[in-house]
Design a binder for these strands. Structure first.
Length: 294
DNA sequence: CGCGCAACCTGTCTGC
DNA sequence: TGCAGACAGGTTGCGC
């Protein structure tokens, strides 16, 4: 569920409510959430510490706690963070009690599908290693350049949509924003990543940034599960240009939007504005087809 | 190493 | 109405 704009929305809402406060109690109610640590182990490592900063890397929410201790939290598909929910939601996996001079406040992780996780990282070296192994460039950083994209995609035959979804290439883009960015760029999701021209990478870079910014401005997309801290919905789903709009006219050319599968995910495109790749290239592929026919 | 796909879970919706 | 099957914003691990 939550991609970069959704996690950033949560971070912006939550940071002023947790920074400077102390985690006086930590309850972890699902051993999947804390794995490989036992719930009690992770809870003990966090409890009693002051929250210094709430950050974000890709789709991770990063809690920086006093004593050089970090929690890298991921909401995966159906995780939601809720501040003092009334009543408590039905799938609570973690509960935090935060205290400052004025009083105590409750923060809860609700997650029906149980994919969400919280990883304990001790020290900045462990932190850097963790993200270096998982995440590529932040698309909203200045370092997110055409040159970086072209280099990372060189020789890749997988569809450009798979490239955008690979967190080690670009951090934070998920299924919604990949579709939106590709449409904005006029690039078909099934085009092999290594085949894009420099001009297409230029448009795709711009499209990724624009789609993510629009998502943040709308405070995220709530198709189904995503909720703000207070349970409110984001509104970006109302501004989707292409995602989940199969059968509707393309906002640019009017042709009917189609749904397909790319990178194993439901994918939406306008095949008038986004030119489908012709078959597949490569002599090896052709040879295999000849054998199959012959 | 690159790539595609199953698996991890639960809930919801669709079609028969 | 009931039920099987498909599908869902993500990531990881396996086999080729």
């Amino acid at each position: 569920m939550p991609e970069l704009p959704e996690v950033e929305t949560i971070r912006r809402q939550l940071a002023p409510l947790v920074e400077g406060r102390r985690l006086v109690d930590v309850e972890i109610l699902d051993e999947r959430w804390s794995r490989p640590l036992a719930p009690a182990e992770l809870a003990a490592a966090l409890a009693g510490r002051r929250v210094e900063e709430l950050g974000r890397r890709g789709k991770y929410l990063l809690w920086a706690l006093e004593g050089d201790v970090y929690l890298a939290q991921h909401l995966r598909m159906t995780g939601a963070l809720l501040y003092e929910p009334e009543p408590e939601p039905s799938h609570v996996r973690m509960r935090l009690l935060l205290r400052d001079g004025a009083g105590e406040h409750r923060l809860v992780v609700d997650d029906p599908r149980r994919f969400g996780t919280g990883e304990l990282l001790l020290g900045t070296d462990a932190l850097d290693d963790f993200f270096a192994a998982r995440l590529g460039l932040e698309p909203l950083d200045e370092a997110f350049t055409i040159e970086h994209l072209r280099r990372a995609a060189r020789g890749r035959r997988a569809p450009v949509k798979a490239f955008l979804l690979d967190q080690r290439r670009v951090a934070g883009v998920g299924n919604i924003y990949a579709d939106e960015a590709l449409f904005r760029a006029g690039v078909h999701p099934l085009r092999p990543a290594g085949r894009l021209t420099r001009g297409e990478w230029e448009r795709l870079r711009t499209g990724v940034i624009a789609a993510l910014r629009a998502g943040i401005d709308a405070q995220g997309a709530s198709i189904d599960d995503f909720r703000h801290l207070d349970g409110a919905r984001g509104s970006f789903q109302e501004e989707f240009l292409i995602h989940r709009r199969a059968g509707e006219p393309c906002p640019r050319c009017g042709r009917e939007i189609v749904k397909m599968v790319a990178a194993g995910r439901g994918t939406y495109a306008c095949e008038g504005c986004q030119r489908r790749p012709r078959r597949r290239g490569g002599t090896r592929q052709k040879a295999r087809e000849r054998v199959a026919v012959g």
